[in-house]
Structure formats: C-alpha cells, structure tokens
C-alpha cells in the first residue's frame, strides 16, 4: 500500500569561519591569486592544509602558485546538479597547478567530453564578483596563464557563507497514514499495544515493547492538560507567533499525552489539570494533516484531580 508522502526541503546559509590558513587562501582568491601551503617536507599543497601531516604543527608558510595547471584526472557530467559551478555540461577534474604538489578539484568548461584529456593544460576563469570563497574560481578553461605581478597579501578573509539546500521525500508509516486519514474524516484514532495494552495517539509501534500495534481505538476530542509551558520567545524555525501556550494534553481514552496549543483562555489561567476540548478548523479545510485541529480550548468541565494524570508527567 502506498502511504502518504510529501517533499521536505532543508536549507540554511552556513557561515564558516576560516581561521588563519584558509583565511589567507580565500583572500588570495579574492585578489585573483592562488596560495599554496608548504609543509615541512617541502611539498606545496593546494588548497593548503591547516596542519602539517607529519609534524602536526600549524602550516604558516603560504606561497603563491600559478593560476594554470595540468589535469591529472577527469570525468564529464552531462546533467549538472543543483549548486554545481556550471549549469551546462562540463568536466570535473583534478588539477595540479604549476608550482603545487597536490591537485585540487574543480570544474572545467571544455565544451564537450571529447575536449577533455589527462595532461591537458587548463587555467582559472575568475568570477566577476569575488568575495573570498572557493567559488571566486568560476571554473577552469583550456589554456595557460601566468601569475600576475607579486604584491602584498591583503587581509585574510574571516568568514565564508555556504548555502546548503537539500531535498527529500518524507514517507509516512502505515500507522501514521491511518491516523492522518482518520483526521481527514474528523476522527482521532490511536492503536493499542498488544503487549502492554496501552493506547498510543498517534498510533505507532510501542516504544516500550518494540512491537507493532494492533486494535484501532477511537479516542475523544477532549482531555486533560497534564503540564505546559508559555512560549514568550521568538526563535529560528518557529511556526507560531509568541506568546502561546504549548500543553501536553492527555486525551480521554489515550495512555500518552499529545502536545498542542491552548487558546481561548489567557495564558496565566492555563493550569495543570485543566479540561480542554479540540477545536477543529472548518470542515472544508480538512486534509490529511494534524492541522485540522486548530487548537484546544477549555471545555468548561471541572479540573481533573492531580492523581488522574500524575503518572503521565
């Protein structure tokens, strides 16, 4: 059976502080210069290593290498992926810049796979806008170039920003799917664990016993606030505007509370033991989503005694 599924994208612009070695390397790129790091054995690494692989000491000797070099390995990509240097077919290559002892990975804009070969000479095509980032090298292209006249190094770059954007497909479990489809019909269901007999809402494999649930149980749209917090603070990723009350609500007929919003009552009047009822959105807006239940509001019943929910705290 196909269960409900939906896309999930996670995206963040990461801010990377660079430290002394990478900071000088990135500053060089901004100035259209490539700096390699010389290690104790005399080898020049491009990109530079931060620490010497033999002595473990910090690398401090940075030397300029040429903006052109030799392809030592390559492949061809016909369909570039999101975020790659070029959005038309290009070659990936390991390139040993003249004056360097190691190779760096970058894209080569060669037109076609037939133009690529091991040993080919390539040069840097600099990006028009350079900020101190590996992408200040737009890509490499066939040809050679020489380094510009020597000059003083500019201030190291402190920070680089790296956007990361990934796409996933989130698939629900059979139990979650069942729960969501019931919600779309205005029902709240749980399932009972065959071992401990507890009713889980939403239904799920019993985390205490590690077994699949069986009997489907419809539970009430009302219950008891076991405990809660008043959220007064904004934070990244938040989906509601503070202040709001998030409570643990033990639905009648369930054996584990669910978190939900409490509205329809001033925050300072929300209390442990408060009886609440689900407030559903307009039926026309229902879907296979927990958002069908807008929030919980006081039901008007007397508060539940502490003993009735103490074991759910």
């Amino acid at each position: 059976m196909e269960t409900l599924a939906a896309p999930l994208t996670i995206a963040f612009d990461y801010t990377r502080s660079l430290g002394p070695v990478l900071g000088r390397f990135m500053a060089g790129l901004r100035d259209r210069r490539v700096m390699g790091g010389r290690t104790a054995d005399g080898r020049v690494h491009v990109p530079p290593l931060e620490y010497d692989p033999v002595t473990h000491e910090p690398v401090t000797d940075l030397v300029e290498v040429a903006p052109s070099g030799t392809v030592i390995s390559w492949t061809w990509t016909g369909r570039p992926l999101e975020g790659q240097p070029l959005d038309w077919p290009f070659g990936w290559a390991l390139i040993r810049l003249d004056g360097a002892d190691t190779a760096l990975l970058h894209a080569v804009d060669a037109g076609s796979a037939e133009a690529m070969r091991t040993g080919m000479r390539v040069r840097i095509r600099w990006a028009a806008d350079r900020v101190g980032h590996i992408r200040d090298i737009e890509c490499f292209e066939p040809g050679t170039a020489t380094a510009g006249p020597p000059g003083p190094e500019s201030e190291p770059v402190t920070m680089m920003t790296t956007p990361i954007r990934l796409h996933y497909r989130h698939t629900t479990s059979v139990e979650e799917d069942r729960y969501l489809r019931a919600l779309a019909e205005g029902r709240i269901i749980g399932q009972r664990c065959p071992a401990c007999r507890k009713v889980y809402v939403p239904p799920r494999f019993c985390p205490a016993d590690g077994v699949a649930p069986d009997e489907v149980v419809e539970v009430a749209g009302r219950g008891t606030v076991t405990t809660f917090c008043v959220v007064n603070v904004p934070f990244a990723g938040q989906r509601l505007t503070p202040p709001y009350v998030v409570a643990q609500v033990l639905l009648d007929g369930a054996d584990i509370p669910v978190p939900h919003l409490i509205l329809g009552v001033p925050a300072e009047e929300v209390r442990m033991g408060l009886r609440v009822a689900a407030v559903w959105r307009d039926r026309a807006d229902w879907g296979t989503t927990p958002e069908n239940i807008s929030h919980f509001a006081p039901s008007g019943e007397p508060d539940a005694a502490y003993e009735t929910y103490a074991e759910h705290l």
Binding site: Y14, R16, T77, Q84, W92, L105, A107, I134, R135, T162
Partner: peptide, 15 residues
C-alpha cells in the same frame, strides 16, 4: 572538505 570542495557540490559518482 566544507571550505574548498563541498561548496562546488561535486556528486559522489563524479568524484
């Protein structure tokens, strides 16, 4: 490497 390689998004098969 998150500074000099990952920002180019080289895919695993190409690498």
């Amino acid at each position: 490497d998150p500074y000099t390689v990952a920002p180019l998004w080289p895919d695993a098969i190409s690498v």
